[in-house]
Write a protein that binds this DNA or RNA. Structure first.
Lengths: 264, 264
DNA sequence: AAGTGGTCTAGACCACAAC
DNA sequence: TTGTGGTCTAGACCACTTG
C-alpha cells in the first residue's frame, strides 16, 4: 500500500511509510488523518453541537489505530475549541451555549465591576432584512456581488446604556427565515442561535480594529456625540473548513468599556 | 513516599499516588511537575534565550521519568512559546530575535501591501529618563509609589510616517543603565534587546484598547490633528512567573493601519 | 552514522462520573 | 461496578539534521 494514502472511513490505512518509495510528497502523520476524518464528521453534522462523540476506544477501533493516536487527534481538536473533553464523561462537540465563556468572541469588557455584566446584554434590533450584497461584502463572504444576504442592524446595551452598534451580514440561503423577532428574543448568545436554528457552528474569527468618529445617526443610536471616538471592529467569522459565514461591523463605545486582548 | 511530593532536582520522585492516603490535596501530574522544574531552570537562566536545552532523553534521565513524560512537559512549554522545538536539532529557549514572527506583540498591520513592512520601523526617542513611579504605574508593575522607574517616550514610524506614539515604563533596578542611545540604535526588536542586555525575557502581554482623541502635543508628534481619533493601547508585559515587567501606553494611528486580532 | 525530535503502539493504572 | 478521559511507561520506528 502506498504511503500517505488519505484515510477514508471505508478504507482505513493504519500502514506507515514502510515501503521504499522515491518521494514522500507531503508526509501526513496518522493522527492528522484521523483528525481530518473526525473533522469531516463534525462538518457533516454527524454529531451535533453539545452532543457526545464516540469514545476514544471506539474511534480507535473504527479507524483501526491505537487509542493514543485517536487521543492526539482529539487533543488538537480540543485545542482549537472544536471539541470539549470531560473526564469521566466523554468528548463533546463544542457549542456557544454552555461554554464556560459565553460570548467567546466579544472582547469588550467593563472597566470596573464584575466582568460578566455582559452576560445580560439587551439587544434591540433596528432592522433585519434581505438585501443584495455589495462588492466588498460579497468578497469577504465569498459570494457574488448582488447575491442575497441578510442584513441586521442592532444595538447592544449594558445596564441600559447603548454601547455597541452592530451591522451583521449573513448569506441568505444558509440563514433562510431569520427575522428580527428571533434575533431579539432568542435566549442566549446569537452564535448559539445560529447553531440551534441553522446548524451553523462558528469556529473562529478575525477582527480588524480602528478608531473612528461616528456619523450623526450612529452617534444618535449610541447616545453619544460625533466628537466622541469609538472603536470600529470588523469581524469575519468562519465556520468549519475556514468558510466565512458572517461579516460584522461594529462600533464600540469605550467610555466605560475597553477591548481586551491577551498576547502570547 | 507520600504522593504528590513536589519533585526537586535532588530528590526526583517518579512515584505515583500509589499509597493509601486519606487525601490527595491537589493532584498534580508528573509531567506538570517536570514542566515546573524546567520552568525553574528557564527562570534561573540556566539556559539562555536562543540556547539549546538538554535533549528529552537526557532530561528524562535527570528526572528519572520516561521520555514521554518529559515530552508532554515540553509540549506545553512549546505551546506557551517559552521554548521552540526543531526536529533533528533539539529544543531551544524561545527568543524575540529569531522567532519567525518578529514583533510578536505588535498587532498593528498596514491596510495594504506586504505585511512585513513593519519589519523596519524607525524608532525615534523623545525622552528616556528615570522618574518616580506614580501610584497607578507602581500598582501595575507591582512596585511602591515613588519607586524609581525608567520612562521612555518614543515614536515609531513606518515609511517615514509617524504612526505610534508610545510611553514605556520599566523598573529601574532591572534595566539599570538603559539609555536613549540603546533604545534608538539596537538592531532588532526592543524585546530582543531586553533579553540580550538585561536578561529579561517577556513571555506574554495583556492589552486594553480604547478609542481616544490625542491632545495637542500628541497630535503634533503623530503629525495629525486633535480631531483624528487614535487607538489607545495599554499593554502590560509579563516575564516568567507572571511578573509584570513593563507598562506601555501607546497611541496608534489607524488611518492606513489596523489592529488585528484572531479569535478562536 | 549518530543524535534529535516526531509518531505509533500496547498495556497498566489513576481520577472522575454515573449507574 | 463500569466506562470515560488522563497519566505514565517502554519500546519500535520514522523524519530531519549534522558530522
Amino acid at each position: 500500500m502506498p504511503p500517505n494514502t488519505a484515510l477514508s472511513p471505508d478504507t482505513p490505512t493504519p500502514a506507515r511509510n514502510d515501503s521504499a518509495v522515491v518521494q514522500t510528497p507531503a508526509f501526513s502523520p496518522l493522527y492528522q488523518q484521523i483528525k481530518g476524518l473526525i473533522l469531516q464528521s463534525l462538518q457533516a453534522g454527524e454529531w451535533k453541537p453539545g452532543e457526545l462523540i464516540p469514545s476514544e476506544i471506539e474511534l480507535a477501533g473504527r479507524f483501526k489505530v491505537s487509542q493514543g493516536t485517536v487521543r492526539k487527534a482529539i487533543d488538537e481538536l480540543a485545542a482549537e475549541n472544536l471539541v470539549t473533553r470531560r473526564q469521566g464523561k466523554g468528548t463533546f462537540v463544542a457549542t456557544h451555549n454552555e461554554e464556560q465563556v459565553q460570548y467567546r468572541f466579544l472582547q469588550l469588557h467593563p472597566d470596573i465591576g464584575q466582568q460578566q455584566d455582559e452576560g445580560r446584554a439587551q439587544r434591540s434590533i433596528i432592522e433585519c432584512k434581505r438585501i443584495r450584497a455589495s462588492a466588498d461584502i460579497a468578497r469577504t463572504l465569498q459570494l457574488r456581488t448582488g447575491d442575497s444576504v441578510i442584513h441586521v442592524r442592532r444595538i447592544l446595551s449594558f445596564n441600559n446604556t447603548p454601547t455597541i452598534l452592530e451591522d451583521i451580514w449573513l448569506p441568505s440561503p444558509v440563514f433562510k427565515g431569520l427575522n428580527a423577532e428571533q434575533m431579539a428574543h432568542y435566549p442566549g448568545p446569537t452564535y448559539a442561535m445560529f447553531e440551534m436554528e441553522y446548524g451553523v457552528r462558528m469556529v473562529r474569527a478575525e477582527e480588524k480594529i480602528r478608531a473612528v468618529l461616528p456619523d450623526a445617526q450612529q452617534a444618535q443610536w449610541l447616545n453619544t456625540t460625533t466628537a466622541t471616538p469609538v472603536l470600529s471592529v470588523e469581524r469575519v467569522t468562519f465556520t468549519y473548513n475556514d468558510k466565512p459565514m458572517e461579516l460584522r461591523r461594529g462600533l464600540y463605545l469605550t467610555d466605560s468599556h475597553h477591548y481586551r486582548n491577551a498576547l502570547s
